[in-house]
Amino acid sequence: MDLEAATILGKLIGAGLAMIGAIGAGAGIGIVTSGAVQAMGRNPDAAGNIQTNMILGIAFAEAVAIYCLVVALLILFVF
């Protein structure tokens, strides 16, 4: 295998590995949403407030996955 092919292979594998971090964000978003839906079921009057906070929590959990995406994009397109 020549060097160029090896570099491309390494980039692709590296980008794929970098996106493993999205697992955590996925689990986090699931937990956040499950908690929020339960809260809305118990107290439907507070649904609006809970929904706002749920979206905020999802956004923060998602931020981690976005860092993974940044790393993967950096590996693929920059280096």
Partner: peptide
Amino acid sequence: FSKVLSFAFRLFGNIFA
């Protein structure tokens, strides 16, 4: 500083993907 990063890449990543 990480707020700037996550703001920018959240929007970019979602729409680009």
